[in-house]
């Protein structure tokens, strides 16, 4: 038996991180942004049934990019965790922060303990009473948590998408305008400029004013109509699709 070569812990961690990043970069992106009535989730997703965006609890939603089987596992565990906590205590005691922590611990443990890190990046969003109390947590493959504000992009070419999103994002914008910004950003993935249609988008909102469960999917005819409205809203703003260099609508 030969002794294995010594590999430094730094190298192991770096290799794992590179592996995870590569895996995540293969997939399409998703964006999460606040609008005047809640939080909007938009993912580039051809499937109508295999979701990247889902409901976790009354005020909490989940969005993910990367390997489907891995983030689906996290989603299902999160639903169990939230339902069990809400059943044991009270529905109002289930918070996004709690779920974000559980996910961070889980991903962190997987990253250090196992040979193969999970190739996922997830977002836990919680809609509050006002937009100031909205919470958006981004949890990466190694278990780090970032408390995000306003908007974020994750997946394939998150940096490009973030830049495109920054151009259009307006704080406190209505839903149509926010959707336009999201679609504009996703269309800039991989440097290409594509025209995204309703069929290739998965859209959902956490709507502040909704009673009981605030998560709602926007699909079918409703999405088509909303996208038309969003395009109109986008054309009206200073940074229309024809002139992406026209500057951001706000600040």
């Amino acid at each position: 038996m030969s002794m294995p070569f010594y590999v430094s812990p730094e190298q192991i961690m770096k290799d794992k991180a590179d592996y995870a990043r590569k895996g995540i970069a293969r997939g399409r992106s998703a964006v999460v942004l606040q609008y005047d009535g809640g939080i909007l989730f938009v993912a580039d997703n051809m499937s109508r049934t295999l979701h990247k965006i889902s409901e976790l609890y009354d005020r909490v939603a989940f969005a993910a990019v990367g390997r489907y089987n891995e983030f689906e596992n996290l989603r299902l565990a999160g639903v169990r965790f939230a339902d069990m906590h809400g059943y044991t205590y009270d529905r109002s005691d289930v918070t996004g922060q709690m779920l974000a922590n559980a996910y961070a611990q889980t991903l962190g443990a997987v990253f250090t303990d196992s040979n193969k890190p999970w190739e996922v990046e997830i977002v836990v969003g919680e809609v509050g009473e006002t937009s100031d109390t909205d919470q958006i947590y981004r949890i990466t493959f190694d278990g780090s948590v970032v408390d995000e504000h306003d908007f974020l992009a994750m997946g394939g070419s998150a940096e490009r998408v973030t830049t495109a999103l920054r151009e259009r994002y307006v704080k406190g914008a209505p839903l149509a305008e926010a959707l336009d910004a999201a679609v504009h950003a996703l269309a800039h993935e991989n440097g290409e400029q594509r025209e995204l249609e309703a069929a290739s988008l998965e859209v959902a909102v956490l709507e502040r004013s909704r009673p009981h469960r605030k998560f709602r999917r926007i699909q079918g005819d409703r999405l088509v109509r909303m996208l038309e409205g969003a395009r109109a809203a986008g054309k009206g703003s200073p940074a229309g699709p024809r002139s992406p260099e026209g500057g951001a609508g706000a600040d």
């Binding site: 565990a77 169990r80 965790f81 922590n101 559980a102 611990q105």
Partner: peptide, 11 residues
Amino acid sequence: SGRLPAAFMSP
């Protein structure tokens, strides 16, 4: 540990 227990992750 605070991580989600194995029972939660089982299909």
